[in-house]
Design a protein around this nucleic acid. Structure first.
Lengths: 353, 353
DNA sequence: CTTCTCATAGTTAACGATTTCTACGCTAGG
DNA sequence: CCTAGCGTAGAAATCGTTAACTATGAGAAG
């Protein structure tokens, strides 16, 4: 007697088995195709599968070891263009390697981030990819280190994407880009154009790894050319267009000595351009502006933005590739992707005062 | 004798039980906290949990009914700004309702989309959210209808987000925005500015629901004002900046009679602006340009873009909210979110020839 | 004619957690 | 003094699938 599955319940292998007069094992074998089954039996089973519209239960299958594994992907938010591209890369590579992709947003909250990692550990995620700069406060780093070890012990892997490594003996995969080097290069470029007073717009998030690196590159370029940095104070940059706009207005209210602006990101640079234009300053004739990231927006601004190119999508792909391939490098992996300056219309020779 | 879990294996309730000298049942109860357990026992169990760094196995828990459910989210790609915002909304709402969020990209391939839906059905996704315009070919619609029914029977739910409904009796949740209405409104606005010859840049993807709707609104506005539409041919628009640029060049190569351009999306409009500028045409003095979507880019363009505002994030949130709340409306749900014109600097009175 | 093998198919025991149902001491009330 | 009740803990069944054994019949080889 074929068990009639209750409506709302999905049919199970047992239902299919009953309906086609074979055992559950046989059904499983027909579906997996890894064991000889007579053509007649196979046909009857497949008929029942289609009639009942049977779909396998991935959870049950996972329990017994089969089925696709999962890659978790934790990001500040999905809408930041840079994040979105990294996400795209992660998803692509995960899919290419037959994994599913779980996505969560932390909104930059380190506590939330820890919760999510724990949740992903429960989900048996094969890799947990943390995207974007994070805090580098000592307590937080230590916490992360513990988590990396815990994940490692569970056969999972912590992946830091666009964030510096935690330490030499921490079992984590790190894929970052040459953040400081890019900042150094583009600052040097500005200096080579004759700029001697460049305003850096990116203060306000101390302990944030991404900005710290960019600021370091900025400072190092000045040192290399033995140039002093004019100290300036603006309101905190929150990496949106508006904060770039407001910070530029702050800047303009106090002094107009700078001949170039280094915006921490392209998005911020978008706001900078608006503020400069409103103040009647021409770019690049009066003030040069550079950004960082080379998101598509950079080409849509007027003038097109000189910036540092980062291949965010490749960053995501590499992160997943290395994480899933961790047998190769049992302990710590660290990959640094290159960056390079893209010269467009927003930079020019320094104006003579 | 406490079973020593093999290294690489995560500890199970059994291990915790053995290590703390109780039964698996008791461990489960301590963790769930839904059954009286003596303080002493609880303490011992918790100690073992921490020592072994035990984490629950979500898969096993899911099998027996507990644990978080999943919302699947299928999108063309993650980097389109509009998609990213919908995704953000979906993830937010899913998280807010205690669900996990699986994300997959179809790259616009209907076949891949069907595969993914099947995969999500195996994953026992509580809702499968399809984001973005899709094909409206009869075969595909019929296929979708079947899928909607299959998902419904399995206790899941198909959600169409930014795509028109499949039919009256199809058990699916549909959340779209007033796509045609927005196109009608912004076209009317252009007409009210005196424009009589408006080029629509969005051909080339016939059967694509989103463009079709926008084109319909464009045509309906012309009809309402009893204006003819000048037929034009440009290369296919692929919804990226480049295709907007190239299509505009095509347009300019043949005629310059149009006084306004209706770009199918803001991104396309970005390319249009570049091409017009290169051709020495001023916006909006010589040509007005409008886009659609009101993504952040619209404010970064020069001049800022007049466009149709769509609250993509709300679209995603509503989709999930309604899908998880489907008891309320057992059969078909259909929600249409409003759109409205945002007037910025890219539009002005029609130039006198 | 017996025995060995091969091709199929079924039985049963996992996987890791939850959830009845059952059991064991106590204390308190009759 | 006996038993009802309470607080606590364990045994066993269950979820849906797979995999390691077992079992059966047919045909081939001796």
């Amino acid at each position: 007697m074929a068990r009639q599955p209750a409506s709302g319940d999905r049919p199970t292998v047992k239902d299919v088995a009953a309906s086609s007069g074979v055992s559950a094992t046989t059904v499983s074998r027909v579906l997996a195709g890894n064991y000889p089954v007579s053509a007649a039996t196979r046909a009857r089973v497949m008929k029942a599968v289609h009639e009942l519209d049977y779909v396998i239960n991935a959870q049950a299958r996972a329990l017994v070891g089969g089925g696709p594994k999962t890659v978790a992907f934790i990001v500040h938010d999905l809408v930041g263009p840079a994040f979105a591209y990294v996400g795209q890369g992660v998803e692509q590579q995960a899919t290419a390697e037959g994994r599913l992709c779980l996505v969560c947003t932390s909104h930059g909250d380190p506590g939330r981030e820890l919760e999510l990692i724990e949740l992903m550990r429960e989900q048996q995620a094969e890799a947990v990819v943390l995207v974007g700069g994070g805090s580098n406060a000592p307590g937080h780093v230590e916490r992360m280190t513990q988590i990396a070890r815990a994940l490692d012990k569970s056969g999972s892997r912590l992946v830091l994407c666009g964030r510096p490594p935690l330490g030499p003996d921490v079992p984590a995969t790190v894929v970052e880009y040459d953040n400081e080097g890019g900042a150094y290069a583009i600052t040097s470029y500005l200096i080579s154009l004759g700029h001697r007073d460049i305003a850096f717009l990116g203060a306000g998030e101390p302990g944030h790894t991404t900005v710290d690196g960019r600021l370091r590159g900025f400072e190092r370029a000045h040192q290399a050319h033995q140039l002093p940095i004019t100290p300036r104070r603006t309101r905190a940059i929150t990496f949106d267009r508006e904060s770039g706009y407001q910070a530029t207005r702050d800047l303009l209210a106090h002094d107009r000595k700078f001949t170039a602006v280094f915006a921490a990101t392209d998005v911020v640079a978008g706001g900078v351009l608006v503020a400069l234009r409103e103040a009647g300053l021409r770019v690049p004739e009066d003030v040069s502006v550079v950004g960082y990231d080379d998101i598509p927006l950079a080409r849509d601004l007027t003038p097109e933005l000189t910036t540092v190119h980062v291949d965010h999508e490749e960053l995501g792909r590499t992160a997943v590739r290395h994480a899933l391939d961790r047998d190769r490098h049992a302990m710590s992996q660290h990959t640094v992707l290159g960056t390079h300056v893209i010269i467009r219309g927003s930079t020019g020779p320094a104006a003579r005062p």
